[in-house]
């Protein structure tokens, strides 16, 4: 089956590709959308109108909970069954760091720099790693800066006025493709574990 994937940045798209190739190699990726990152919120309802399979991953970011994001993006429109719409708690980067052992070893910094997961909702049994601020920023400022590897520091520390490190994608994508342990990460992030479940049954 052919599927289009939607992610607003290089890292999100790499995460989707890796998950599909690891758990659903019967799916082949057709188009990679959208062309420009900022378009994702505007385009999200349009993918719902396509009658073909689409997998979208976005960041929860400033929203309190996934239902409020969905309400804001789609109103009361129901999502099509061929549309897998998933939201990463915090940012996609949180899912990467949720593989605490693999990530800290790769980035060559102390594992304790990545917070332990905490309970977000006791009743629904939701656990996630909660970062003190934007997870990608925390990764660059707190974890990468403590790395013992010069190349990693140079690649991930942002230059003045830049939002990300100069080789942010170039260095993270190979980690996602080759090292990231999805099962380990899913133990620390319910949003990832549920996405995995949904992907398997998609």
């Amino acid at each position: 089956m052919k599927v289009d994937i939607v992610g607003e940045d290089e890292v999100t798209r790499a995460v989707l590709k890796r998950m599909i190739s690891a758990y659903r190699n019967d799916l082949s990726i057709d188009k990679i959308l959208p062309v420009r990152g900022g378009q994702i919120k505007v385009s999200a309802p349009k993918y719902n109108l396509l009658q073909s399979p689409v997998i979208l991953l976005t960041d929860l970011d400033v929203y309190d909970c996934p239902p409020s994001l969905i309400q804001d993006w789609f109103g009361n429109t129901a999502l099509n069954s061929s549309y897998l719409f998933r939201i990463a708690y915090g940012e996609t980067e949180s899912w990467l760091m949720a593989d605490r052992k693999g990530f800290s070893k790769w980035i060559n910094a102390d594992i304790n720099l990545i917070p332990l997961p905490s309970i977000v909702d006791k009743r629904k049994n939701i656990i996630e790693i909660i970062f003190p601020y934007k997870p990608s920023l925390y990764m660059m400022k707190k974890i990468a800066s403590a790395s013992k590897n010069d190349t990693i520091r140079d690649s991930l520390l942002p230059k003045e006025g830049a939002k990300k490190g100069p080789l942010y994608n170039s260095i993270l994508v190979p980690f996602i493709e080759k090292i990231w342990n999805i099962e380990d990460a899913a133990k620390n992030s319910t949003s990832l574990a549920k996405t995995l479940e949904r992907l398997k049954s998609f």
Binding site: K159, E160, G161, A162, P166, L167, Y168
Partner: peptide, 11 residues
């Protein structure tokens, strides 16, 4: 120019 790694001193 939408690459997020470009700094304000590089522009």
């Amino acid at each position: 120019l939408s690459n997020e790694g470009i700094g304000g001193n590089e522009t």
